[in-house]
């Protein structure tokens, strides 16, 4: 301990505390900034998949293309109107929907899943030909009462791991184009 005390420290105790305090403030600010960017998917209406699944709606009723196309597609306002022209309940979320229906403006749903533009992903290939359940990739979003609060990533690692198991192609240009 004696030796330690004898070393010439260029900063005083107070200076060190001030520097540490400064770093802490910067870190907290950064966490707020990144939090706002990363956690930032806020849907215009808090859509409840669970209630609709319980009302016997099939995925295909609202995501109509996955059997024929690369994309699944998301529902237009018209799809909602077939039931919601009459209020179905009393929730705040539904009131918002009724306002959209009154104005006729499409709801600007934010995308949760997205692969980069140079990656080819086809729902038909996986759902119809590969016979893979939505849940394998999307988790229980189809049965959850609230949309996930942040974008979920299907990483290349996940794609390639399953491809290895199912003996699908892992050639880079099978996916990248």
């Amino acid at each position: 301990m004696k030796i330690l005390r004898n070393i010439n420290v260029p900063f005083s105790r107070n200076q060190i505390l001030a520097i540490l305090g400064g770093i802490l403030v910067v870190v907290v600010i950064l966490i707020f900034i990144f939090g706002a960017v990363w956690g930032g998917v806020k849907q215009p209406i808090s859509f409840n998949h669970k209630i609709h699944a319980e009302n016997d709606l099939d995925c295909l009723d609202c995501h109509p293309y996955f059997n024929e196309h690369a994309s699944s597609g998301r529902p237009s306002l018209e799809t909602c109107m077939s039931c919601h022209e009459e209020p179905q309940g009393e929730s705040l979320a539904e009131k918002k929907l009724l306002e959209y229906i009154k104005s006729g403006n499409e709801i600007d749903w934010q995308r949760l899943y997205r692969v980069p533009e140079d990656v080819y992903f086809s729902h038909r290939r996986h759902v119809v030909l590969g016979q893979i359940d939505c849940m394998t990739c999307h988790g229980n979003i189809g049965e959850s009462p609230k949309p996930p609060s942040e974008p979920l990533k299907i990483t290349m690692k996940k794609c390639m791991k399953c491809h290895e198991e199912k003996e699908a192609s892992n050639d880079c240009i099978a996916c990248h184009r």
């Binding site: 533009e117 140079d118 080819y120 038909r124 119809v128 030909l129 240009i173 099978a174 184009r177």
Partner: peptide, 29 residues
């Protein structure tokens, strides 16, 4: 079906490989 390349990468003829991707999926279907 073809991505937009960004500045700073090399590209070349692919023999329209994206057409093979689609053709293969169609044949499978």
């Amino acid at each position: 079906d073809v991505s937009i390349r960004s500045k700073g990468v090399v590209e070349k003829c692919t023999f329209c490989h994206h057409r093979l991707q689609k053709a293969r999926e169609k044949a499978r279907a």
